[in-house]
Computed example of a mutant assay.
Amino acid sequence: MTARKDSPARSGTDSLREDKRALRRRLLDARKARGDDARAAATEALTRHALALAEGVEGPICCYLPVGPEPGAAGSGTSTVPDALLAAGHEVLAPIVPAEPGPLDWTRYEGPDALAAGKLGVREPGGRRLGTAAIARAGLVLVPALAVDVHGHRIGRGGGYYDRTLPAVPAPTPLAVLLHDDELIDLVPAGELDVTVAQVIVPTRGAVAVRNNG
């Protein structure tokens, strides 16, 4: 029987998808296993580093709203990274998940009291939508991820929203990912459509440049 011509490509895609799924499970399990004190200490350090990176930035800062075990989420005695940026006087834009798969919309973040239930069980600001192009005027973009490798490849939760969004960010604008120290790893399985980042922010080292291969 003659093999279908698309079998190798399909096999490669399936293998990449499974590699990503396995890595996500491992990374999510590791995050859930972190104690409250460790999370709070990480958020305190990440907040300090993020504020240093944002100092002197012109334009708004696009930043996801971290929750639960995500780096930068609120802990015992700590606020979230976006709350700290807001308190420091920065204009913070938060992402809005679209009804259909596509680039993220954006709106101004005005604090936790202004949040309402959104898509995917995530609380979102209820303010006026600024459109998907709002990210193009950002001075800094803080991107979520479960891990980033030394080449700048990131792995998220699999929705693909940021991979559809980040191509709209002008090249000079820094893209940074908040991570725990052990989430900067040697290799993330990546495909052609996966967007790379130029730096990560980790608690012990602050902002770390990674080899961004575009």
Rank of each mutant, 00 (worst) to 15 (best):
P101T: 07
V150E: 15
D29Y: 01
G77K: 09
R34K: 06
P95R: 13
W106C: 00
T107A: 15
A40F: 01
E183V: 12
G139N: 01
D163G: 02
D37T: 15
G158T: 03
D186K: 05
A145M: 08
T2Q: 02
L166N: 01
G35M: 10
G68S: 12
G191D: 06
A138D: 10
R26L: 03
L193V: 07
G111M: 09
E44T: 14
G158W: 11
A87Y: 01
A133W: 05
D194Q: 08
R17F: 00
H180L: 14
V202W: 00
R48G: 13
V208L: 07
T173H: 01
R211P: 02
G127V: 00
K32P: 03
A99R: 10
V197Q: 00
T47R: 14
Y109V: 06
A136Y: 04
T47C: 11
A50P: 08
V81D: 07
P203A: 08
P203T: 03
L166W: 04
T47G: 15
L16W: 07
G127Q: 11
T43Q: 11
S15C: 10
G131H: 08
H180T: 01
L53S: 02
A52W: 05
I96T: 03
E100S: 13
E100H: 13
P167D: 02
G56Y: 02
E58S: 12
G111E: 03
L179Y: 08
S7V: 11
A42C: 12
A209G: 10
H153K: 12
G56F: 06
R4L: 09
H49G: 09
V97G: 06
D186R: 11
D83C: 12
G121K: 06
D19L: 13
R34T: 00
D105A: 02
I155P: 08
L175N: 05
G77N: 12
T132I: 08
L51V: 09
I155D: 08
L16Q: 13
T80A: 07
T78G: 05
D19E: 15
A145W: 03
A168F: 02
P66Y: 06
